[in-house]
Design a protein around this nucleic acid. Structure first.
Length: 643
RNA sequence: GCCGGCGUAGCUCAGUGGUAGAGCAGCUGAUUCGUAAUCAGCAGGUCGUCAGUUCAAUCCUGACCGCCGGCUCCA
């Protein structure tokens, strides 16, 4: 019997008899690992745990703790679910069922939509199958055999998928009467799938194409322990609790009205105050960073949008035209043409460049009704837009500068983690390939220079140029797209933009479109969720709330409020004849950073009793001391005095 | 736009084929109180809109509008 040598993850090497399986290796290494093992990596390749090892290799036992482990686990759960569905509804046709970021789904073609009751039945059947410890086995067959197999079992979607596979050897997985086309790997037995929940049903087009038939997609999630599942469900509750639409209502920040129209936000005083604070900060930073402010109108003549190319490439997202004295006008979906017209208003020299025109520009885009979502996806929104006109040779340097600005800006608002995506040429695009290539390259170099990790998004660029989008990770680890920096080799040509170079010849500038926050609406929505409505003191609409204990302290309390206001702190007074406990409760629910209780004791000492949002009592503090501390916290953009 | 669910007071939600209720919020009054809910009273609704069925519709049916979860698309 021959021996093989396996190198483990910790660097140690062990000798085993050839033919040993992954599961057996896991058992030899440790009982606990054997219990948790889901799959095995052999020389970096993920495989089933029951594969027999025949050669020397580096191996790694994969558990749920690793991303690959979760993928295998969820993928196997999706098979378990499909198995259960086929048991209950044999007529349901199988489409696809992959693992996703969190959990899995499986698409079925079924004569009617699945109901919540169906999900309960399916869950029960899954539990039954899991308890029965059904072995899951991999098999390889030829393409022809596979097609015959799935034709026989009347699975047209599977047949379609197999027909498109390039390989002649197809792997399938069997668990009792359920067989699925699958690359794998999978866990060895349904017994591994312990705690699961079917979360929702939704329509989804076959292969994501709206021209295709709509299938029924069942989403679910699973964990090796009940505790982990419960933890996940708690996290879902937390996400619900932080929902900006819920908090926006509770904190009276904004509303959306049926009367006004879908996707058109109304900013209430408190929301507007936060927005103003953000905008003030934004303007100051832009001024420091060499930007010039401009303003432009909300509508423009059709010929402007024809020149810009919007009418040929962006029309489906534009509101229909309006007639003004026989001329066609369009509401602006973007600010660029206006900024370009400002550029073109006079002859520009290389000495003027780079020119950076910034505007909080309100645009309107026709978004299909089904996609609107609170403030995160609306039809009218204000972009924190800027267009940078730059000589080709300064392009790279300018991009680096912009990306640096983005990162600094986002960090100020409490976002620390980002993910960047460089998007390349889409099919429906203008401009020649060479320029696209050059621009994409410049974005990559810039991202590298500021140490921004990025992924490629092939074909995801705008019609006018490649872009780098920065997604922000919020408090719950979810990614949101806000910042975008977009190259444009197209508009300068279309508008015949020029500048006079050092050689006294006309040259063409490049244009960079960029938004740091994205839009005020989306960014605000994200901020609400990130902070769960408890804004850092510099952004909080009410920074300090003064609570009088009885009417006796009323005059003093008014004085405290007025002094705070004079110092530049947004202070309010709650002078109602309610018990202090009640006032505190309300101030806490409003998520006011500082609650100042004033009774006789404080009046005597010219002081305030400071309670920080969340319940922490800082005790009695002289008013001047408190004022100075808060001003420092505001200046440093801290959450509260002690965080 | 497509699939599914939902639409009752400002908010959160009960409810019935015989034209509606609760809690909170609001208003009025009482209470003057030390760190998350003081008490009492009052007021508040074309039951999303429009048709249809019915002696009678908030309830049943249909269309439309809006919202929610997805798909597709995006700042």
């Amino acid at each position: 019997m021959s021996e093989i040598q396996l190198r483990l993850l910790d660097g140690s090497e062990k000798k085993y008899a050839a033919g040993i399986t992954g599961q057996e290796v896991a058992e030899k290494i440790g009982s606990r690992l054997a219990k948790d093992a889901l799959a095995i990596k052999v020389d970096g390749r993920l495989q089933d745990l029951n594969v027999s090892l025949e050669h020397n290799a580096a191996i790694e036992i994969v558990t749920f703790g690793a991303p690959e482990g979760r993928e295998v686990y969820w993928h196997s759960t999706s098979h378990l679910m499909a198995h259960a569905v086929k048991r209950i509804f044999p007529q349901a046709k199988l489409a696809i069922g992959p693992a996703i970021d969190e959990g899995f789904y499986y698409d079925f073609d079924f004569e009617r939509p699945f109901t919540p009751e169906d999900l309960t039945r399916i869950e029960a059947k899954m539990a039954e199958l899991s308890k029965a410890s059904v072995p899951i086995r991999r098999k390889t067959i030829s393409k022809a055999e596979a097609i015959a197999l799935f034709q026989k079992s009347a699975e047209p979607y599977k047949v379609e998928l197999i027909q498109e596979l390039p390989d002649d050897v197809i792997s399938i997985y069997e668990q009792e009467d359920f067989t699925d086309l699958c690359r794998g790997p999978h866990v060895a037995s349904t017994a591994k799938i312990k705690s699961f929940k079917l979360v929702s049903v939704a329509g989804a087009y076959w292969r994501g194409d709206e021209k295709n038939k709509m299938l029924q997609r069942i989403y679910g999630i699973s964990f090796p322990t009940k505790e982990a599942l419960d933890e996940y469900l708690v996290r879902l509750e937390e996400i619900k609790r932080r929902d900006h639409r819920k908090l926006g209502k509770e904190l009276d920040l904004f509303s959306l009205s049926e009367e006004v129209g879908g996707g058109l936000a109304l900013w209430h005083p408190r929301g507007a105050l936060i927005r103003k604070t953000i905008e003030d900060f934004w303007r100051d930073e832009h001024q420091k960073n060499g930007y010039d402010f401009v303003y432009s109108p909300h509508v423009g003549r059709a010929n402007l949008w024809e020149t810009s190319g919007h009418l040929s490439f962006y029309r489906e997202n534009m509101y229909s035209s309006m007639d003004v004295e026989g001329q066609e006008y369009y509401v602006k979906p973007m600010n660029c043409p206006f900024h370009i017209m400002i550029y073109k208003n006079k002859l520009r020299s290389y000495r003027d460049l780079p020119l950076r025109f910034a505007e909080l520009g309100t645009v309107y885009r026709f978004e299909r009704s089904g996609v609107l979502h609170g403030l995160l996806r609306v039809r009218g929104f204000t972009q924190d837009d800027a267009h940078i006109f730059v000589a080709p040779e300064d392009m790279e340097q300018e991009i680096i500068r912009v990306i640096d600005f983005v990162v600094t800006m986002l960090r100020t608002f409490g976002f620390q983690e980002f993910k960047a995506y460089i998007a390349t040429r889409p099919e429906d695009a203008v401009g020649d390939n060479a320029r696209w290539e050059q621009a994409t390259q410049a974005l990559k170099i810039a991202a590298d220079k500021v140490d921004l990790a990025y992924e490629m998004d092939e074909g995801g660029g705008a019609f006018y140029g490649p872009k780098i989008d920065i997604k922000i990770k919020d408090a719950l680890g979810r990614l949101w797209q806000c910042s975008t920096v977009q190259f444009d080799f197209n508009l300068p040509d279309r508008f015949d933009m020029t500048y006079v170079g050092i050689d006294n010849q006309a040259h063409r500038p490049y244009v960079v479109h960029r938004a740091l926050l994205g839009s005020m609406e989306r960014f605000f929505g994200m901020l609400i969720e990130h902070y769960a409505g408890a804004f850092p003191v510099w952004l909080a609409p009410v920074q300090a709330k003064v609570l009088s204990i009885t009417d006796k302290q009323l005059e003093y309390a008014k004085g405290v409020r007025d002094k705070l206001r004079a110092a530049g702190i947004r202070a309010e007074l709650d002078a109602r004849s309610e018990k202090v406990g009640f006032k505190i409760r309300e101030a806490e629910l409003e998520k006011t950073p500082y609650i100042l209780v004033v009774g006789d004791k404080e009046v005597q000492q010219n002081a305030v009793a400071v309670r920080v949002r969340g319940g922490k009592d800082l005790g009695v503090m002289r008013l001047e001391e408190f004022t100075q501390n808060v001003l420092n916290a505001i200046h440093e953009k801290k959450c509260t005095l002690h965080s």
